[in-house]
Amino acid sequence: MRNWSILFALAAIASVAAFLYAPFSADWWLPNPPDQTHHVISAFGREIDNLFLIILFITGAVFIGTQVVLVYSSYKFVDEMDEHGKPKRAATYSHGNNRLEVIWTIIPGAILVFLAVYQVGTWASIKFRSAAPRVAPLAEITARQFQWVIRYPGPDGRLNSPDDLVVVNDFHFVKNKQTLIYLKSSDVLHSFYLPHLRIKQDAVPGLTIPVWFDSDTAGSFEIACAELCGWGHYKMRGKVTIHETETDFQRWVSDQLTEQNKSQLTMTAGAEGR
């Protein structure tokens, strides 16, 4: 009978071990650039990861504590019979302990309230509209089945004018710069998810939702759709390119505009056929 405690112990140990191993593996841990497993690339990402870690430590401690008690009691307090078939030991006759109840109500309660209060600030700075950076929106992203239509203001600097640059599934922005986008949907619900930046926001038809973020690392990342949007939900991947400098970004925009305004084939571009 005692052996059953080993099963419970093993489950608990394996659970803890998985999370102990995770930071040492590139794809068990939080999504980060492939070569920098512990480098979160956005300011919000760092805050969110820290909060995640705090909760992980607190819940980890509670988990270990409760599992130790559970395993110990299922080892120690197993019913055993003597040679006459009588129990070796009587169970404690107790209906509880008020002091204990108060302790284990107040302490977790205080921790939970602390956690909630401690997190509000981050939440507000990521989502409250009053916290949105006072910058012109970089782009308007409209989700539709099954792609992200990204519209950058053209040379006139205004969105929704005929000179806009419109690209599909190809989102570009600049490193170390507060970036603001307007998120829309033209059909069903979608969710704009930047795993490496820890940004997620549903796109809702009929609403225009501002989303803002930054990144301290240039490179290639991706947009995932995190809200079921139909048969092609899994196909809704977008590419994210974070440019080193504003100049790079502007160069990309002007290249794209040149392509978008193309009215004749040239020998070189014709073979490219972009």
Partner: peptide, 25 residues
């Protein structure tokens, strides 16, 4: 079609239809 035409369709999809843009996939 010219090969470029097929390439464009596959890469950019056909807007307003169910043909997705495959350049991200």
């Amino acid at each position: 079609p010219h090969r470029d035409d097929l390439r464009r369709t596959i890469k950019n999809g056909l807007h307003g239809t169910s043909m997705p843009a495959f350049h991200a996939l």
